[in-house]
């Protein structure tokens, strides 16, 4: 497949860690990626084996010994389970799937990156990728650079969001969401079928995001609702205007809006409160640079951190 083709295709990156969360989010990915023009990449990131922690004996010595015994690398079973789920969900049904194994050497690790590509006749791809990286978030971001994705899906399980260690090691989901150049879905109890709650503040970026998410929602045939929050009573007409603008745009695209919500108060609190009635909250991310986001904490990141259900940060 050449680069042009890759750009036209809808590419989904699903990060697996063996938790229930990640397999739930895989179901959503399967729905998004059921079309022939979509590729699904399942990714497991294994931290690089290194010897500073192991008293000077490189972990690779132990790893090579395990391989001699015929023991699989951690992560392979999670990827295989993911592939079997995709088969059960009908994503990999039908025609012949060609299988291709690819290995890439990585500095400082005896085993490097390994992946299996499954390609069908129409060119649809499902990839199982076992990647090695210094840490999980870096691995996910490096994977994005290898082939651009439209969306990264990751579960907000304990492995991704180490609460106790958050000051030492910025949580994986947070780090990916800050740095990834594409939309990031942080899944928490992701239950498909309750629709997308799209939040808009009327800005140009936000309108673009509404349009993009509508495309996503139409892929998974999910109902769409719109929400806008006014900071105070005076602001309410503006919020109403935002909603009307977004609704008009969606109607022009042929997408029906199920419900519109206008609230007054703190945007973060209002959005989080309205969220659980929907499968996921969709929120746009303003054009701040990485560090500004980190220190000032935009509405999008506060919602992502504190929401009770899944959040899609759209870009």
């Amino acid at each position: 497949m050449n680069e042009q083709d890759a750009q036209d295709r809808f590419r989904i990156l699903v990060c697996l860690d063996g938790s229930d969360e990640c397999y739930q989010s895989l179901k959503y990915a399967a729905k998004l990626g059921s079309g022939v023009d979509a590729d699904i990449v399942l990714l497991y990131v294994r931290p690089t084996d290194q010897g500073l922690r192991s008293g000077g004996l490189q972990v690779r010595v132990a790893r090579e010994n395990m391989l001699k015994w015929g023991i699989e690398l951690p992560g392979i079973q999670y990827l295989k389970k993911g592939r079997d789920m995709l088969k059960d969900l009908g994503v990999m049904s039908g025609e012949e799937w060609k299988e291709e194994v690819v290995h890439t050497d990585v500095d400082g690790d005896p085993l490097g990156d390994n992946k299996i590509n499954y390609v069908n006749e129409q060119g649809k791809m499902v990839v199982l990728k076992l990647k090695v990286a210094t840490d999980i978030a870096t691995g996910i971001l490096e994977q994005w650079e290898l082939g651009e994705y439209d969306i990264i899906i990751l579960g907000a399980s304990s492995r991704w969001k180490g609460m106790a260690r958050s000051f030492w090691d910025p949580a994986v989901a947070e780090k990916v969401a800050v740095h990834a150049p594409c939309s990031v879905l942080v899944a928490r109890d992701l239950d498909i079928g309750h629709g997308h709650l799209i939040c808009t503040d009327g800005s140009d970026e936000s309108m673009e995001m509404v349009r993009r998410d509508a495309v996503l929602a139409s892929r998974c045939e999910c109902p769409v609702s719109l929400m806008s929050v006014a900071l105070d009573v005076e602001d309410e007409p503006k919020a109403k205007e935002n909603i009307a603008k977004a609704e008009k745009m969606l109607n022009e695209l042929g997408i029906e809006v199920e419900e519109t919500i206008i609230r007054t108060g703190n945007p973060v609190e209002e959005i989080i409160e309205a969220g659980p009635n929907y499968s996921l909250i969709v929120i746009s991310e303003s054009s701040k640079s990485g560090l500004q986001r980190f220190f000032m904490g935009s509405v999008a990141f506060k919602v992502m951190e504190n929401a009770h259900n899944s959040v899609l940060v759209a870009r």
Partner: peptide, 13 residues
């Protein structure tokens, strides 16, 4: 990270 043995068995996943 406390002892080398712990780090190595942790690598098993």
């Amino acid at each position: 990270v406390g002892t080398p043995a712990c780090t190595i068995v942790y690598a098993s996943g």
